[in-house]
Design a protein around this nucleic acid. Structure first.
Length: 115
DNA sequence: GCAATGACGCTCT
DNA sequence: CAGAGCGCCATTG
């Protein structure tokens, strides 16, 4: 593929539906970069504001909003998610077993056990 | 080309 | 369940 790594990552993030979240590792895997979770964060970091990408739907494997080196966006991310109906627990973490996005089995193997 | 960096993840305590 | 340690890998300087 000639598309850049970032473009592939963005393409996957765009597929995450409203009201659901995906983990960095999950995005990486679906983008063809197994083990490249950090690259997903790196890519989102350099995201332009005009890009219409639901970056707020990407959280870490523990269901928490990742802390930026340059603080600020975390709070907005939480507000945006709550606005979509995603609930946060007392310690600010999302129940992934309930809100994690489960893409169709056609494009990727299941990485979250069915409930 | 080598070393450091970072919106991460998995295991073990 | 929370924290520490070690592994990961594309991008940067």
């Amino acid at each position: 593929l000639s598309r850049s790594t970032w473009q592939r990552i963005y393409a996957v993030v765009r597929r995450v539906p409203r009201g659901r979240v995906a983990t960095y590792g999950q995005i990486a895997k679906l983008a063809g970069l197994p083990g490249g979770a950090r690259q997903v964060g790196y890519a989102l970091h350099g995201l332009g504001r005009d890009e219409r990408i639901p970056w707020q739907r990407v959280v870490n494997a523990r269901g928490e909003i990742s802390v930026r080196s340059i603080p600020g966006p975390e709070e907005m991310q939480r507000v945006l998610l709550e606005d979509e109906g995603v609930e946060f627990g007392l310690r600010g973490h999302i129940d992934l077993s309930r809100y994690q996005w489960r893409p169709r089995a056609t494009s990727a193997r299941r990485e979250t056990p069915l409930r």
